[in-house]
Design a protein around this nucleic acid. Structure first.
Length: 260
DNA sequence: ATGCCTTGTCGCACAAGA
């Protein structure tokens, strides 16, 4: 099963890119973030011919997440547990069947949190605590489980071309990185880091200041795998060339192949 | 030090992103 995650920065603006990506890579599952539209504005008709089933948690203007799956999904969850008053559309989860078994896939758009300190940063840290609690509960089920998405976390200095630019940023501050590590300490595996310890691997390049042309990137899109999913990991790919397309998203897709 | 782009919004500038 090929699972992809991609922050598209407006699904309406990126529809042609998405269709091209689906055609070229033929992933079984695609987790999308930053739809920037409500449920009824999601381009379902435009995706009709692709054969993907669609689960959406949209929101006006900001945020918004979706899962596309070739096979029908079950047990779709639209909220990250832990705060019933949280209205931001940043979480969607579904059980997806494969050839040999099922995988539960959570698609997340973790808050940016800038500036720090601020209420936004407090919200980010609280959201990470809720994700930690949810992951711990899922891990107790001892099944293949994947958290895929835009984490807005630079895990290590080598995950930034110029780490000194990020030392005061919510994506790289010590509390942010500590909470990311605490997810790993639960027993989750950073899929890309299971395949390589190389530096220079990025998933985001800012639109500004020629970041792409200078390769001034950061690695902030991740897939975390439960032990039962990690045991089945075959490969991880950053689909880097999409950043060079016309009118691209500032993020590129991350893709993992699981033997499921 | 700030903005640099890009997107969405009951636009006509601003918020949010990272």
């Amino acid at each position: 099963m090929r699972i992809a995650t991609w922050n598209v920065n407006s699904v309406k603006q990126r529809l042609e890119h998405l269709l091209r990506f689906l055609k070229e890579e033929a992933p079984d599952v695609v987790c999308l973030q930053e739809l920037k539209c409500q449920d009824d504005a999601f381009p379902r008709l435009e995706l009709d011919g692709t054969g993907y089933n669609i689960a959406v948690r949209g929101q006006k203007s900001f945020n918004g997440v979706a899962i596309l799956s070739k096979r029908p999904m079950e047990d779709i969850q639209l909220r990250l547990p832990g705060d019933d008053s949280d209205e931001q559309a940043r979480f969607i989860e579904a059980l997806v069947p494969g050839d040999k078994g099922v995988v539960r896939i959570a698609c997340i758009y973790l808050p940016n949190g800038n500036p720090a300190p601020s209420e936004k940063y407090s919200y980010k840290l609280a959201w990470m605590d809720r994700l930690h609690a949810h992951a711990r509960a899922r891990l107790r089920e001892e099944e293949p489980f994947v958290i895929a998405g835009d984490f807005n976390v630079i895990p290590e200095p080598k995950d930034a071309a110029r780490p000194e630019q990020w030392v005061n940023d919510a994506l790289f501050l010590p509390p942010t990185r500590e909470k990311f590590r605490s997810l790993l300490h639960l027993g989750l595996c950073d899929a890309l880091r299971a395949t390589t310890d190389a530096d220079g691997i990025y998933t985001f390049w800012d639109y500004q200041a020629g970041a792409w042309q200078k390769n001034n990137g950061i690695r902030i899109d991740h897939m975390l795998l439960s032990p039962q999913a990690a045991d089945r990991l075959r490969s991880v790919t950053v689909v880097r060339h999409t950043r060079g397309w016309d009118k691209p998203s500032d993020h590129v897709p991350l893709m993992a192949e699981l033997d499921v």
